[in-house]
Design a protein around this nucleic acid. Structure first.
Lengths: 170, 170
DNA sequence: CCGTGGTTGTTGAACTGTCAACCAAACTGT
DNA sequence: ACAGTTTGGTTGACAGTTCAACAACCACGG
């Protein structure tokens, strides 16, 4: 979509920007358009089947992967690439639903430990099959293994570039 | 991220869902995490450099590509994969900024034609170089041409699958 | 100790997107 | 001609996100 500048004809270029070729433009639009529709579809199906948003789902996933199902707010925010503020709001809502709870952190009095409740665990277990199926239906199973692997590798390169290489799991 | 269900150990599976392999999980997480960070970075840089959101930018791009810089609301919404409602709100805001204007449609009295103004055009021309550079910096130029092409091809497959094959330009 | 600066997390206001309800105009079939 | 349905678009209430300001705490150097 945008990367070509959208200028119907590549008119006078005020700066020395190198425009995208027609091919690059096509790929870029496919990537943007495909990603947008894919994430929208996954979001919609998860919401419909389980009542969770993908963000809530991911919070639960991250918590479920630690030994004590607990994570500091900052680590959670970094993992999810969400702002602190956004995470605070999300966690407050999830706490109201009984999916997680917040406890003060002993080692660092500034910190807050976020733990998933038993209910949160059960909600995640109930939601996972549906979501996995969605991901298969709309992405994994419609690509060849090579295509899917190439997709992952390319985006891993992008991620490393953006996080300066120094970054966490996700 | 989620597709593995996040269940630290693949415990008892209540349904007959086929989970993702460790490799698939890795690729899926890379794709989701990389995409999220990439789009966030592009959004942030465009906003910082030009004051436009990527959505507003795309509206202008789409309009700029038609002969008369005009598109029906529904076509615009389809192109962008946005809901009608969302587009109405977006266009109202852009109209207030003088970037576009809405005119009744002659052929179909239900319809509304959205046209980009001269100011809108100039804003787009001014914004494009910066945005193209961002896309190059964070995506196009850090991948090999083959990687980037594979990315585009894969996501085009995804897009076609989601739109039932019958779909527009984007 | 005290102060300075950086980190952690929260808050509230403003903004953006979603959802359901709605109106008006166009098609459809009789 | 005309009820019923579909399409195009808007609206307002609500939910989620961003942003700037803030409070509490750590860490380090005088």
């Amino acid at each position: 979509m945008p990367a070509d500048g959208g200028l119907a004809v590549t008119t006078d270029t005020p700066t020395t920007v190198e425009w995208l070729t027609a091919e690059q433009q096509t790929h870029w639009r496919a990537f943007r358009g495909g990603s947008a529709r894919l994430f929208a579809a996954l979001e919609h199906e998860l919401e419909r089947d389980t009542g969770l948003s993908t963000h809530e789902y991911e919070v639960l996933v991250r918590l479920s992967e630690t030994p004590d199902r607990t994570l500091r707010m900052a680590q959670l925010a970094d993992n999810l690439a969400h702002s602190r503020s956004r995470l605070t709001h999300t966690i407050r809502r999830m706490e109201e639903q009984g999916l997680v709870e917040r406890l003060p952190c002993i080692e660092d009095a500034r910190g807050v430990n976020c733990t998933m409740t038993e209910k949160g665990w059960q909600v995640l277990v109930a939601a996972a099959p549906s979501h996995v199926q969605s991901v298969r239906d709309h992405l994994v199973d419609i690509l060849t293994p090579e295509q899917f692997a190439a997709l992952g590798d390319a985006m891993e390169t992008v991620r490393l570039h953006l996080t300066g290489g120094a970054c966490h799991v996700e």
